[in-house]
């Protein structure tokens, strides 16, 4: 089990990608996160995500343009100055 977890590349990519999106926009933008997380070399995964994406688009559940907070620079500065924020 430990070996399996250690080999997983998705979860660290998810956490890193999540932070990058928040650092840029201040709020989560799900399509941007997904693009940072999914395996683009895996056609099966791409097809599966495309199918879910289509379902969500039909229901108006995908916001194509990211929503940004007003003070994105402040937020990025605050995070940069926060102690202990070393990459794991």
């Amino acid at each position: 089990m430990k070996e399996k977890l250690a080999k997983s590349k998705v979860k660290p990519k998810f956490h890193k990608g999540f932070f990058e999106v928040i650092n840029k926009y201040g709020r989560l933008h799900e399509p941007s996160l997904l693009m940072k997380t999914i395996k683009k070399s895996d056609p099966k995964a791409l097809m599966h995500n495309a199918s879910l994406g289509l379902r969500l688009v039909k229901k108006g559940k995908i916001r194509l343009r990211p929503e940004k907070i007003e003070h994105t620079a402040d937020l990025a500065n605050m995070l940069q100055k926060t102690e202990g924020g070393k990459e794991q």
């Binding site: 998810f14 956490h15 890193k16 932070f19 928040i22 605050m78 995070l79 102690e83 924020g85 794991q88």
Partner: peptide, 13 residues
């Protein structure tokens, strides 16, 4: 999501 990557950032957010 953030705390696993950079714990102190999560507090600040």
């Amino acid at each position: 999501a953030v705390s696993s990557y950079k714990p102190q950032y999560s507090l600040a957010l």
